[in-house]
Design a protein around this nucleic acid. Structure first.
Length: 253
DNA sequence: GTTGAGCGTT
């Protein structure tokens, strides 16, 4: 819907993509179109938004037909206050296929792309010396190099679910959260097993149970009882990932 | 209702 009625990339044959950063989260392509269209022929304006939340990610792609117009728009709209925020307009360094593009234009053909190598690390070359615009306020942009895109990923996760600070008392909190957010228990389950600070959540259940697999792993069970007892899985397992019904299991109040 | 580093879709 963000497009002008087009589905997917319309035509990126000789178009120049401009990356608009620092835009507000509520800025839509319709708001940027008239803005960029005034400086040149805008072929398409696309604003990547989250698949889950559906909100804008804070940047947009304005595709121009000519480089001169795009360049002009960069100098004109770069640093412009849009929706109360200072946007940053610059040529896209990466194409839709995560390929290197020159001046917002794709230099390499998509057929030549051997996999989408988004590794943009070993390329701290030209950055802005080519740009005619002055350095206005790029204090964080510099430091951004040292940071990896991991931070970006982490931020995305936070977007979905607030920062779950388990530093407090996850014991009683966990129970409450489990009852409210059962859809995210999968994520927490992985983390809780991977990262478990000492003294936070001891897992005595990890110890070998006296009876686990009757007849195969626990010959002791049948020998002891003298007969294979069809004992089902005990509630001690407490699997909060396959039990959508948090009925009384181990913690009966 | 929030946040703010970074590069994209039917």
């Amino acid at each position: 819907m963000s497009h002008f009625g087009r589905a997917g990339p319309p035509d990126i044959r000789d178009t120049f993509s401009l990356l608009v950063l620092n835009i507000t989260f509520r800025t839509t392509a319709d708001d940027l179109f008239p803005l960029f269209d005034k400086y040149g022929k805008v072929v398409d304006v696309f604003i990547p938004r989250d698949r889950r939340t559906g909100e804008s990610r804070g940047f947009a792609f304005v595709r121009y037909k000519y480089a001169d117009e795009a360049q002009k728009a960069v100098e004109k709209l770069d640093g412009k206050i849009v929706d109360g925020r200072e946007i940053m307009v610059q040529f896209a360094k990466y194409g839709p296929n995560a390929e290197r593009i020159h001046k917002g234009r794709i230099i390499e053909t998509t057929s030549k792309t051997s996999g989408r190598s988004r590794s943009r690390s070993p390329r701290p070359r030209y950055r802005d010396e080519n740009r005619d615009r002055d350095y206005r306020r790029r204090s964080r942009s510099r430091s951004r190099e040292r940071y990896d895109h991991d931070r970006y990923r982490r931020r995305e996760r936070d977007r979905r679910r607030r920062s779950r600070s388990r530093s407090a008392s996850p014991d009683h909190h966990k129970d409450r959260w489990r009852g409210r957010h059962e859809d995210d228990r999968r994520s927490r389950s992985r983390s809780n097993d991977s990262a478990s600070p000492a003294g936070c959540s001891p897992h005595p259940r990890r110890t070998l149970s006296p009876r686990r697999t009757p007849g195969v792993d626990s010959p002791d069970a049948q020998t002891s009882n003298g007969a294979s007892v069809p004992k089902t899985v005990l509630p001690h397992t407490r699997v909060d990932s396959q039990s959508p019904t948090p009925q009384r299991s181990d913690a009966d109040e």
